[in-house]
Amino acid sequence: MSQDAKAGDEIAEAAADWLVRLDTGSADPVAFEAWRSSDPRHASVFAQMAATWKRIGDLRWASTDDDAVGPSAMEAIEPELPRRGIDRRAAITGLAASIAAIATGAGFWMHMRRETATTAIGERRVVRLPGGALASLNTATEIAWRMGETLEIWIESGEAAFRLAGKGAVGAVLYAATMRAELAGGSYNVRLFEQGPRFAVMAGSAAVSAAGGFTDMLHANEVLTASASGFLTLPLASEELAQTGAWQRGEIIFDGMELSAALDEFNRYLAEPIRLGDPAIGAIRLGGRFRTDDPSGFLQSLYDGFGIASRRSDTAILLYQK
């Protein structure tokens, strides 16, 4: 073993010790920060350990079958049975029984099948769920579902719209972060933000519960929002209603929002993001309807309307005032 490799092992050992002792609460956070900031290698190896540590926990709800997700055609409606593009998943539950089985090496896993569907950045697709529910996935989205006595749906990331009709879909339960919503037949949109889910009822009704003891009954044209101070039900603005329809057609609507906020929205769809080369132009307010799969129309409008030009940098498209 080379000197470098030996040093690497020592850092790995220290990183694992720090992580475990931070987890159990016996580490001194100040001493830890001192260790981490003393060498970028410490920071890097610690982050690698933390990624592994987190991944172990993911097994709590996740899969054992190996079935890669293939690319799927945009807007293709896929059948509910697992196939290319949808993957079969078997989840292990965090029950003592399965843990005991793992611990004894008996290899006994409780299988509870969960299906998932994902979209890449800029991709959209429609997936048929069991019981006659339709899920539309917006860009960079992952959902999972399971059909037991009722249909359960999880939003893992991104944004999705659901149309529920037919007996099989009645009483479906939708989970998004800490929110749980029991859905009647209807039409719903849910998007996961960093601060929590935003859940809109376009048609139908939903019995919602969420972290902090929040419960409410949402009806058509109401939206549940999450903020740092908790959950709140509001009337659904017509602009937001229009937006939920627009993204399903591959469009984005700006209704007088600031350019900086508009870019945040547009960049959800772009592998190569658009950024402000000049912060001063971020406050410009703009309106309009654009295709999310092609930012050139948007860039042209910025140029025509505001004299804002664009150029490519290595990592992004930069906007600047001409």
Binding site: G57, L59, S63, T64, V69, I102, G105, G107, W109
Partner: peptide, 28 residues
């Protein structure tokens, strides 16, 4: 996803007491 499947396999390879500790803390 592949990573997760491998992880399930690695857990089984851990020494018994290690495995028990990790599973109880992280999965349970």
């Amino acid at each position: 996803r592949q990573d997760l499947n491998r992880m399930a396999g690695y857990l089984e390879r851990l020494p018994p007491r290690c495995r028990e500790a990790v599973c109880l803390r992280k999965i349970d």
